[in-house]
Design a protein around this nucleic acid. Structure first.
Lengths: 226, 226
DNA sequence: TTCATTAGATGATAAATATCATATTTTTTT
DNA sequence: AAAAAAATATGATATTTATCATCTAATGAA
């Protein structure tokens, strides 16, 4: 069992506020899991009772809409925490987390996290600011969904992927998503998404090569978001 | 200047965690304002540096989309607080608040609120839980916007208004909104909104009488949301 | 009250998006 | 490697939604 001291999650998340002693305590009580691509870390409605540290890999945060469609709200990647909101609200999680690639995660039980939360002011402030950031993002996202047409939303989604995951040497997006998954980020039908990608390709804003999406010029694509 | 002790905001908001002494302190440092219908309490991008208590009246929380349309994200009514997220993130507000009717509000400067925040654990926990609730709501709302057609979203909006503001004796919604405002809650064109309201009327799910919207049977309307 | 202005309503039409069908390509399984 | 399955692509069409035009009703100012 690792000591958590060198963990990337400690480096990048709210946990950076914890001191050595507190980190050791976590190392003691955490449990580690490997999640295979396609498997859930948790599912909408579950009682999670703790938070997950994403040590490696990427997952999608999804919610089933009433008509059975899955909406992807965001992607979470290594270094981040999952389940903070639900832990604080003391409610079941409202989103599912599903691995997009094989993942390494750790679980820290609620009572431990809440101990730090109550005794370490910097930690609780970090968590709070994180959630505030999520709320702002959610509001922005909501307005885009309500007001922007599919073409603009698709462009925004591609920019989001570019900014969050960067590109490979060939400038293809460094995140593996099916067209169906991109569509459910955008909030549109898979065929519409494919068609628009194809249009972007013809316009020269992106290049499609197999299922790879190449973004030669971020600015050019970015213009399509407004 | 009132003493805040009997204030409805104290009764219903996070402020209920404050003790008598703390409330007196607020009474001392607060400033009271009357906001006329149509006027903003604050606007997107402003540095607010404190929170507002809504003593009376209702306001809309809006955000301008890139194409110049206003989206109404939610309505805030008496007893609630405004500006918590922005104060905690130490950022300009990301939404505008505009009075839908004449309002009574009080402003509490940031340094005072933060003092309570740091010294009164129950208060900070209340604020945190509030923001967590907002985040959950925003996620749900986002999925509805992305996945549901306009007709369903309109029905949801009417249900939201019914549940939040109730009805007059004639079962008309007890909140005054123009068709344009309803449309910008739903995220659609004003004409489309009017047309659908007219359809609902013909279907007998609602009744239109002047600009009043009468909801004789919540359940019947509720069925249109799925 | 009367006029002017704004809000609401509705038709006609255009544009955006979804759906269904089917072909092609890619991936997985055998 | 071959066969099967799944994902991607694209055409045809239907449905949804927006836009523009025009009319009517409601509201506010003189």
């Amino acid at each position: 069992m690792s000591k958590c001291e060198q963990c990337i999650v400690r480096e990048f998340s709210s946990l950076k506020a914890l001191n050595k002693e507190e980190i050791l305590r976590i190392a003691d009580c955490k449990s580690s899991y490997t999640i295979k691509k396609g498997e859930p870390i948790f599912s909408e409605g579950e009682n999670v009772n703790g938070i997950f540290c994403i040590k490696d890999g990427v997952c999608k945060m999804t919610k089933l809409s009433a008509n059975g469609n899955e909406q992807i709200l965001k992607l979470i990647t290594k270094g981040e925490l999952l389940g903070q909101r639900s832990m604080i609200s003391d409610e079941p999680v409202n989103l599912s987390a599903v691995a997009l690639e094989d993942m390494e995660v750790c679980f820290i039980p609620k009572n431990e996290v809440m101990r730090f939360f109550n005794q370490n002011n910097q930690f609780s402030m970090n968590v709070l600011k994180n959630i505030c950031g999520d709320l702002k993002e959610a509001d922005d996202h909501l307005v885009a969904m309500a007001q922007k047409p599919v073409k603009q939303r698709l462009a925004e989604t591609l920019i989001y992927l570019f900014d969050s995951f960067g590109t490979n040497p060939d400038k293809s997006l460094n995140i593996k998503l099916s067209r169906e998954e991109i569509a459910s980020m955008v909030g549109t039908a898979t065929e519409s998404c494919i068609r628009l990608l194809s249009d972007f390709n013809k316009q020269g804003v992106i290049q499609l090569s197999g299922k790879k999406i190449i973004i030669p010029d971020r600015d050019k694509l970015s213009k399509l978001t407004q």
